[in-house]
């Protein structure tokens, strides 16, 4: 295992009456692509804000790249890139001007900054639009600009707080590819999301956060092994299947969804047996699907709730 890059020890943060983070301890390694998965209000943004020193924690310590992070440690921020959840751009300025304004704060030699800006604009295909005011950009373009504005100082660590909100699948893919390439180049990335598909696709290790607590942590495939069942079987709802749903309960827990049943097996059995059994009953079904285990299911198992409603 490679060296530790981010070390979070027992941090807590309260807002008035709400405990946003409750004694969170977490370690992220060098060049890891770490996913922080959690529903709305779980405390993801709060954790990110603490990691970059925007707020101070009520208790606990954070070190990044060996240095303590607090509100007053401006130097450490030169090694951190932070992509805020909200678009943080000046609408009235052009893409290029936005990048210049924010880039200058990092004390990069002018020539280098200009090269960086050009390079990053090309990387996310915004170069042709660099002279347009950002208020004329589409949502996806703004998101991309929002990301590269955090990369101009070539940080070792990149903290992305839901960087793809409101982006269509195609642009989202492009952003994923871009982030993966950054990770390959050696950047350590923490990526927050409430889409388990994103976390599964991008991240090598994942922490699941809920109500300010890390409730599961580990490599994605290892996490899924925690599931008591490995896959679910979805069965279309129709008069015939509804009438005979008792059969399914022999095999596991049955959850009723709007248009289908979800069977969560509690024991191992052969699918051929299962199918033979329901066909023997003369059940009419138009489809039955096997679902591989997901983080969504893990979240459901751990909390009794879904990631998103």
């Amino acid at each position: 295992m490679s060296a530790s890059m981010i070390n979070i020890q027992q941090i807590s943060k309260k807002y008035a009456t709400i405990t946003a983070l409750d004694a969170v301890t977490l370690e992220v390694h060098q060049q890891e692509f770490f996913g922080l998965l959690g529903p709305n209000g779980a405390g993801k943004t709060t954790l990110m804000n603490l990691l970059v020193g925007y707020h101070n924690p009520d208790s606990g310590t954070i070190t990044i790249d060996g240095d303590n992070v607090t509100q007053d440690s401006l130097e450490i921020r030169k090694r951190i890139g932070f992509v805020p959840q909200s678009l943080a751009l000046y609408d009235e300025l052009t893409g290029q001007e936005n990048l210049e304004v924010f880039g200058k704060m990092f004390d990069i030699p002018r020539k280098m900054l200009m090269e960086q800006i050009q390079e990053q604009l090309h990387a996310v295909e915004l170069y042709d639009r660099r002279k347009d005011k950002t208020k004329t950009y589409s949502g996806g373009m703004k998101r991309r600009l929002n990301i590269i504005a955090s990369l101009l100082h070539d940080p070792k660590v990149l903290l992305c707080d839901e960087p793809t909100v409101g982006v269509d699948p195609q642009s989202r893919n492009a952003i994923f590819e871009f982030l993966i390439s950054l990770n390959k180049q050696g950047k350590t990335i923490i990526y927050t999301t409430h889409y388990m598909e994103e976390a599964e696709r991008l991240c090598t290790r994942i922490g699941i956060i809920d109500h300010g607590k890390i409730i599961a942590l580990g490599a994605t495939d290892k996490l899924l092994e925690q599931l008591t069942y490995e896959e679910t079987i979805a069965i279309i709802k129709n008069p015939s299947t509804e009438e005979n749903k008792k059969i399914f309960e022999k095999y596991g827990a049955l959850v009723e969804e709007d248009d289908h049943f979800e069977l969560k097996p509690v024991k191992r059995f052969l699918l051929s047996e299962f199918f033979a059994d329901i066909e023997k009953q003369g059940m009419q079904y138009s489809w039955i699907e096997l679902h591989r285990p997901t983080l969504e299911a893990l979240f459901l198992q751990l909390t009794g709730r879904r990631l998103r409603d």
């Binding site: 925007y54 951190i80 678009l87 943080a88």
Partner: peptide
């Protein structure tokens, strides 16, 4: 509101 304050305050700006 636009988040630029957040961006500035998470760069080397106090």
């Amino acid at each position: 509101k636009s988040g630029v304050l957040l961006r500035l305050l998470t760069s080397p700006v106090s």
